[in-house]
Nucleic acid binder design. Structure first.
Length: 690
DNA sequence: GTAGGGTTAG
């Protein structure tokens, strides 16, 4: 075995092999007669996915009547075998629900009829397809009651079903109890561990398996490459990579794609590209993997040009490709490319794909084009929790808090189970829109009604909500009442609220907590500095400045850029390097004059009170303002301006841009690394997000 | 002879 792994010390020792050839875990041996095991099922509660299989009273009546009629009929003698062949046919064409309905007739009318291996196999397949624990329990009970000894194949299928349903405890129990195991049993179990995020355990089992089966087929390595990706240790991934080369499966398409993904997620885009270059045949999945890799590392333009290269090379574009491209467009704020991707989605026949459509909802939501987002969402035939979350977050981030709450309520009514992201979206929507009462109701309902434990982010939302209302003591009390150690997000929310409401004492406390946790983070000091400045506490402000100096923390010059005719133009604060400098400055001055008539008052609060007058003058020419002026001069009046900033928008700029959007009638989208700020006709709906 | 594998969305 070529792989040497250093796993976490707290792990229990490796599996041992008992004299009977079965594995023992933690000293306990789980060998028992397979036919007797009914316990894995007895503890299983019915999955919600089983609802459709639950016979309705009327349906039972109908079935019983049907069976009674059949019992009185001569057909009865030949009927079960016909039923079986019908079940197998239905499973072959993926009509699992109907297959299980026929099985119900068997259960009701033919208990005692041993249907035979192939039908059991088909029935387990149907349950796997339906992810139905209750179904497999029924099939298995029928099997055991009729004296059928499940063979290895059927056992593997049941194991797979547990794994696919995420019931890893049951899967493990079954796996331990299996008298016979082959490579498929091992890799099903290991794959399940990888899917459930238990990567080190997956490696432990893999090492055990390797002693028993030296299974060097490509699909085994693919699973272990995924495990390396999950572990995040590139060295482990490299060792698996070298194993694939030694075994001669390094060129396998599946292996290559898994490797591209692994190298990219472990931080090496160069290695990922190297694997891609060496692929003998560049498949769609290969292209998708490399495009996604570039996108993951923030190389959006490169990713997009790879997509065009893929298209030009005649590779098949699939729904994965389009989903990735839409995501890239969201990051580039490129409406034009996104529209093309939307069209390609429909043209290639993936108009109903849930992931691609969710990516579109997300794209339009990020852009603040909520009508478009809603339109795509409404047309989706299938929606999952992520689709709902994207829409709710969209409404929330663009100031439509009531719509966000409404969608949340509709989601719950329709039986979709909200997760922690849903609550983050709806709570921050309540916070931004000042829906305090509703926010609290939802916060309390999280663990009570939806069994979702509030995390630090949810607390931070509530602290922000209280902070906006000026209820700073309550916000502080909430921090102290949290059942975990308060995080930086929570203190930062309190500090921001203190700055907003000029509460020096609490602000100082929050800032000190933050200094302890993030001593090198500049913005924590700046917020306190501004709080001191606005309260006229010059000595304290000077103290903060001294701390900054001592720590060598400096403000980086702000930088923003705008794309005009596919060409990006970059501006620094007070930048004079551009050839149109004169016009740009004139435009900024004009706009400033214009918006001052609409109530804009320049914020004279400066971060560095000791800079001279000339510098002060330059500092007011924020990079965003210059970029917007450039955009106003060089783009047609109907196009929205997309400004990207390398920093967080400051309060002064924020109100200025809002007013510029109003007086010029232009739509302005300002985005930073993680989120969009959207301004349209003077209404702004953005807030800080973590 | 069957089953276990890669890429996408908040």
């Amino acid at each position: 075995m070529e792989i040497a792994l250093s796993l976490h010390k707290s792990q229990t020792p490796l599996l041992g092999t008992s004299s009977r050839g079965s594995l023992s875990f933690s000293g306990r041996c789980f060998v028992s007669k397979v036919a007797n095991w009914s316990h894995p099922f007895s503890r299983i509660c019915c999955s919600s996915m089983d609802q459709t299989l639950k016979p309705k009273p009327k349906k039972v009546e109908y079935m019983e009547r049907l069976v009674t009629v059949l019992n009185h009929n001569q057909i009865m003698k030949t009927f079960p075998s016909r039923l079986c062949s019908q079940i197998e046919k239905l499973v072959l064409c993926n009509r699992y629900r109907e297959a299980m309905e026929l099985f119900e007739i068997l259960e009701l009318g033919h208990d005692g009829f041993d249907v035979g291996g192939s039908t059991y196999d088909a029935l387990v397949s149907a349950c796997v397809g339906l992810r139905s624990i209750r179904g497999v329990k029924r099939v298995f009970n029928y099997m055991i009651n009729n004296g059928f000894e499940p063979d290895l194949y059927v056992m593997n299928r049941v194991l797979l079903m547990y794994v696919k349903c995420g019931l890893m405890m049951d899967a493990r129990k079954l796996f331990d109890e299996m008298l016979e195991r082959d490579a498929a049993s091992w890799m099903t179990m290991i794959g399940g561990l990888v899917d459930s995020g238990n990567f080190s355990e997956a490696f432990r089992l893999f090492l055990c398996m390797w002693e028993e089966f030296n299974d060097g087929r490509s699909r085994t390595f693919v699973t272990m490459i995924r495990a390396s990706t999950g572990l995040g240790f590139i060295q482990v991934g490299r060792q698996i990579h070298s194993c694939t080369l030694k075994r001669g499966v390094g060129d396998d398409n599946f292996v290559s794609c898994a490797l591209i993904d692994m190298y990219s997620k472990c931080g090496s885009i160069a290695d990922a590209h190297c694997v891609f270059d060496q692929m003998p045949e560049k498949t769609t999945v290969g292209w998708n993997s490399i495009i996604a890799s570039y996108a993951l590392h923030g190389y959006s333009e490169e990713a997009l040009s790879l997509y065009y290269e893929m298209r030009d090379n005649g590779a098949t574009i699939d729904h994965f490709t389009i989903s990735i491209v839409i995501r890239i467009c969201a990051r580039l704020a490129s409406l034009e490319h996104a529209k093309q991707a939307h069209a390609a989605l429909v043209r290639h026949g993936y108009g109903t794909d849930i992931v691609a459509n969710t990516a579109l909802v997300d794209f339009y939501s990020k852009w603040g084009r909520m009508e478009d987002a809603r339109h795509v969402f409404n047309r989706m035939r299938n929606k999952n929790v992520i689709s709902w979350n994207a829409l709710i977050a969209g409404y929330g981030n663009h100031g439509q808090g009531e719509e966000a709450v409404e969608m949340f309520e509709q989601m719950v009514r329709e039986g979709m189970i909200p997760n922690h992201v849903t609550f983050l979206a709806v709570l921050s929507a309540c916070s931004y829109s000042g829906l305090s009462g509703r926010g609290w109701e939802i916060f309390y309902s999280m663990s009570r009604d939806h069994k979702v434990k509030p995390r630090a982010m949810h607390y931070a939302c509530m602290i922000e909500l209280l902070g906006r209302e000026g209820l700073l003591d309550k916000a502080y009390a909430l921090i102290r009442s949290a059942p975990f150690k308060p995080t930086t997000n929570m203190w930062a929310a309190l500090l921001t609220a203190c700055r907003m409401h000029e509460n020096l004492e609490l602000g100082k406390l929050a800032a000190e907590k933050l200094y302890g946790m993030e001593p090198e983070k500049l913005c924590n000091y700046i917020v306190l500095l501004n709080l001191y400045n606005s309260s006229g506490k010059w000595n304290e402000a000077a103290g903060v400045l001294q701390t900054l100096k001592r720590k060598g923390l400096r403000m980086l010059p702000a930088c923003s850029w705008i794309e005009v005719k596919k060409q990006p133009y970059t501006f620094l604060c007070g930048d004079k390097s551009h050839s149109q400098t004169k016009e740009i400055y004139q435009k900024v001055d004009n706009i400033m004059f214009e918006i001052s008539r609409h109530g804009y008052v320049e914020d004279n609060e400066t971060l560095l009170p000791d800079v001279d007058e000339e510098e002060q003058r330059i500092l007011k020419y924020h990079s965003e303002k210059l970029a917007i002026a450039f955009g106003l001069i060089n783009t047609p009046h109907w196009t929205p301006l997309q400004i990207t900033q390398g920093h967080r928008v400051c309060g002064d700029c924020h109100s200025a841009i809002k007013l510029i959007a109003m007086v010029t009638g232009r739509e302005i989208v300002v985005r930073d690394a993680s989120r969009f700020h959207h301004f349209r006709n003077g209404s702004c709906s953005c807030g800080d997000y973590w």
